[in-house]
């Protein structure tokens, strides 16, 4: 489970993704429509393999029902309030924890990143804190906070706050010496510099942190639900599995995957809107 994905080395802002279509067409590769077709057929191929595996009976149908059986449960599930309740519970815990991490991690990261002394003095503490495996601390939280939604939110927060904080810090440090010196020579005051130089300079990196955290938040929320009795998608998976409703368990897993994928799409869209100033290829 990707719970301690907080790498010290911050991930580079994802630049290639946007550049890809343009470069492909220029290099004479497949066009946009063809590309989409190819990607969809790759998905279809995996679904077919899954169906073949299930039909061949290599794995028992209680462990791996076929795709038709799994997708067949969706119409029924969509009609139940339990399904939507579970989705809501998971999203609620993930979103609250994620927002708290963003609200605390981003400003703290930007400020400590701006001042070298703050960054250096907080480094040891941050490195120690983020090394604790959050899930392993779950029993402690259960003991202190009880089996409550607050526990879920807290664990999500802890898993998200470090990537967000570190990416923001890294972003604030990304102001080049050249720009810093230019701003010095034109005597740009500190508040203006923070708002119009450090902030935009840090945005690509901050967005990467938020995107990592958004995906992590759902993963961790579901993880907590699987390990505890807290309601949500994870809990429904466990219940369905224990009740022998394998198809339903897989339907919930696919739901979780869809949520994660949607979050990724959304954050990409937000990133594109915020970073319109960047050159399309953004190389050299």
């Amino acid at each position: 489970m990707a719970i301690s994905t907080t790498d010290r080395r911050p991930a580079a802002p994802d630049r290639k993704r946007r550049a890809r279509p343009a470069r492909r067409t220029r290099a004479g590769g497949p066009g946009r429509r063809v590309l989409l077709l190819l990607q969809l057929s790759a998905v279809l191929a995996v679904l077919l393999l899954w169906a073949a595996l299930a039909a061949a009976g290599l794995v028992s149908s209680t462990a791996l029902p076929g795709p038709t059986a799994v997708f067949g449960t969706f119409p029924e599930l969509f009609g139940t309030s339990a399904y939507w309740q579970a989705v809501g519970d998971t999203l609620n815990g993930a979103l609250t924890g994620f927002l708290a991490a963003a609200v605390i991690g981003v400003p703290l990261g930007l400020v400590t990143g701006t001042y070298a002394a703050a960054e250096q003095s907080s480094r040891l503490l941050v490195d120690v804190l983020r090394s604790f495996p959050v899930i392993a601390l779950l029993p402690v939280f259960l003991l202190v906070l009880g089996s409550t939604p607050t526990t879920k939110t807290t664990v999500v927060f802890l898993a998200c706050v470090f990537p967000v904080f570190l990416q923001a810090q890294y972003g604030a440090r990304s102001v080049t010496p050249m720009i810093a010196e230019t701003m010095d020579s034109y005597r740009v005051p500190r508040h203006l510099r923070f708002r119009k130089v450090i902030l935009p300079s840090a945005t690509p990196s901050v967005m990467t942190g938020l995107r990592l955290a958004a995906t992590t938040s759902v993963l961790v929320a579901i993880g907590v639900e699987v390990l505890t009795t807290l309601p949500g998608i994870g809990h429904e998976v466990v219940l369905a599995q224990q009740g022998g409703a394998a198809a339903q368990a897989y339907a919930y897993i696919i739901t979780a995957g869809t949520i994660g994928y949607s979050i990724n799409l959304l954050s990409q869209f937000a990133e594109r809107r915020l970073l319109r100033w960047r050159p399309p290829a953004h190389t050299d």
Binding site: M178, Y186, W277
Partner: peptide, 21 residues
């Protein structure tokens, strides 16, 4: 320290302009 009467043009124009503006 930098003075209001003195403006500087650096060699590295790419590095000294703010790309987001």
């Amino acid at each position: 320290r930098p003075h209001a009467d003195i403006a500087v043009v650096f060699q590295d124009y790419r590095g000294s302009l703010l790309p987001w503006m």
